[in-house]
Design a protein around this nucleic acid. Structure first.
Lengths: 238, 238
DNA sequence: GCAAAAGTGTTGGATATACACCCATGT
DNA sequence: ACATGGGTGTATATCCAACACTTTTGC
């Protein structure tokens, strides 16, 4: 995992000079979940006068000297939202020179996913909460860009991996799975075709039964066959 | 493009403290091209005793205080290879604490592409050159990981975008285009199906004629219809 | 006329889409 | 018995993969 420092003529000492340590490293995280069949994102209040007043933005913050970016994501999500269990992956790094009015900050943007029942169970601080991604106005900094990158990544991976598992409880009905797909893709899918394809692909398997919805016929519970987010052959139009 | 610094209770002053400016920022670039119908990568000599002796690795180096990561990629490729014209995109950021034995270095890995004729025309320094990606042993640092990430990204985008244009001259024969695809994917494709799909998709259009290969029937020259790397409907198995 | 690369169609199988009704349960 | 969501099959169109010979050119 090492990058070269002035390779070719080798200046290890350059690392000790202070003018090359200009960067403040940070992380920003788009935490997504499905609530009420719609994609939601976790937002926190941001109020840093005079530049930023009463705005909302993605959770995140500094990376410490002995932390990786992923460590920092874990720490900030735990501190700000009590979130301990989640899936995450790196998106992009924003290194624009004038990004933050207060100084040079390089931010590693991440995508995180939590199942809806976990999202609901969190005890969030005042002002922090889940917002329907379709009803979000301007966010602080470049956080709208990060959110769009996160949605795009999730949409793409929905077709090519089993990433949807990160939005659901370990056991789920096919209707719940379909809702997750529809929430992410923002469009309705055909129920029969969806079931055919998912079951034929072998990535989910039936188990027992269920009553929950308090109304209507109980649905069969399914689980993912693999144990992680894995690439799948093809699951194109669903 | 700004990341937040200790949001919620707003400590702009924290940016001025030195202990948070621990990071040295760098870039590493996997520059790929097609030579002799095979995918090649640009490697430079790396010799930083005692840790690293007579090794090879990807070009790259430090990011300066007034540069973005992309600026640094441009500067290092120009300095080390005289490369001015290329396509690039960001891959991943490596932030492991122990990545570099000489200190904490956070590296933003990039993928760059150049057409074969450009790759051949460069006047490269001694020891620097193009290596067949299938015949590469261990590289310095974590550069094998970066190279694999670059190959994976390129393979994926070959199907979903017009990124192949970045590996060819503006005018090219369909055989050359197919060679580029085959070089990246590492397998042979069916000539008739390839032509059918590419032409039907409308992303390439015929122009004049050509003699070049000094042997055999001349091929028609084609060009991409769009002007940039764009997503395309579908181009699955090719 | 021969060596080399360009160019061209068809067919069978698989996959995707569109579409409407019955079933199991709780109230 | 009714309201609610779960569960099922078929027919058509489209897409994909496999496959071999003829054409144009330079020497």
């Amino acid at each position: 995992m090492a990058a070269s420092i002035e390779r070719g003529n080798a200046l290890a000492k350059v690392i000790d000079r202070n003018e090359i340590r200009f960067a403040v490293l940070a992380v920003d995280v788009a935490v997504l979940t499905i609530l009420d069949w719609k994609l939601h994102v976790l937002l926190i209040p941001i109020h840093l006068p005079p530049e930023i007043v009463h705005a909302r933005g993605l959770p995140g913050g500094l990376v410490r000297p002995r932390e990786t970016a992923e460590d920092a994501v874990a720490r900030h999500l735990a501190e700000r939202a009590g979130l301990e269990d989640y899936y995450s992956e790196q998106l992009l790094t924003f290194s624009g020179v004038e990004r933050d009015p207060r100084g040079r900050v390089v931010s590693v943007a991440h995508l995180a996913l939590v199942p809806g029942h976990v999202a609901r169970s969190l005890a969030l601080p005042e002002g922090t909460g889940w917002w329907d991604v379709e009803r979000i106005g301007a966010l602080a900094y470049d956080h709208n860009k990060i959110l769009e990158a996160a949605r795009g990544r999730l949409r793409a991976k929905l077709h090519s991996t089993t990433i949807a598992r990160q939005l659901l409880a370990p056991r789920f009905t096919l209707s719940e799975l379909q809702s997750a797909y529809e929430g992410v893709l923002g469009r309705a899918l055909d129920k029969r075709n969806f079931r055919k394809k998912l079951i034929a692909s072998g990535i989910v398997r039936a188990t027992g039964r269920k009553v929950q919805q308090a109304l209507g016929r109980p649905g069969r519970l399914y689980r993912f066959t693999g144990s992680a987010v894995e690439p799948i052959s093809i699951l194109a139009g669903t």
